[in-house]
Amino acid sequence: MRDAGWGRELTGTLVVAACAVGVLPMLVSTYTLTVLIIYGMLGLSLGLVWGFGGILCFGQAAFFGLGAYTYAIAAINFGESTVPMLLAVAVPAGFAAVLGAMLFYGRLTDVYLGVITLVVTLILHRFMNATAGSEYVIGNARLGGFNGIPGFQTLNVPGDPSAYVWGESFYYFSAVCLLLAYLLVSAVLRSSFGRIAVGIRENETRAALMGYDVPARKTVMFAAGAAIAGLAGALFANWAEIVTPRLFSLSQSADIIIWCIVGGLGTRIGPVLGAAGLSYLKFLLGQQDLLHNSVVSGAILVLFVLFLPGGIAPVLANAWRLVTRRRPRSRYRRPRGPRSSLASGDA
């Protein structure tokens, strides 16, 4: 739907993103910023699946790691990066579609969903750790067990494997990827599909009684989130230039969930900000040894759950409204159409 609100939002997003991408390198090195962007994208993926799809996935790290490994393995075999990038999106999405179909057609919900996605991540973690032997080879790529896969072809200009995209240009490339993913998520949420997904989050039985195929729609949502997480994984592989089983670790999975809660569940920008903010904090804490990082992120989580359960994003939105003196708009956009007898709810 191309209405006026979408145009304004698009312009606003582009302006804010351009400013952030231009200004931040003056404060933080682009190398660090790149990984914050990548984590932001990973946060966005769970923000979509959990915040709007209502699917609590404890295993978003599985799709992230799968994307990274897919990229690394394909890059070694193909010797260039374009097809591996596409595969790194497609493989996690396909895996999630199969896993999601089993979960959602099996009518698993809530805690069972969390347990199974968590276990899948653990299995991948274990498996990847156990692939040190020389028999674990895919094409020319050795899986390498605990040590992971180093030395694969990193991102290059399509068609020219010797023209590497790295350093500053990789930073801009990642930023554009995040922006595109964000706009895609925004467009999906504005579409009927997105609004129905939110309806399913609110009440599955009612959605089914309206005639919507709930398991199919949840599976698609789950796969879409995995595709974004896979892209983040591929970017991460390019940034780190090595992939290891640590990508599938429990702490990685837990971090993503904390990012979403702290940033603001049910918002688009919240998980992105939560991911970038907390990861930067982790980076700063890593430079000292007085306080252990997990103590701090645990404390932050507890404080947010107790005092700011809605997360940062709603607070920022309210502050913005105060600054611009705009009256709060209804959270729920009414599509264009005749107003008829509808109350003018903006008053």
Binding site: E202, N203, T205
Partner: peptide
Amino acid sequence: PSVMDGLSVFENIWLA
């Protein structure tokens, strides 16, 4: 009553 509490009345009916 089975309605979607997180959405507006309009959205509830629009979805149907």
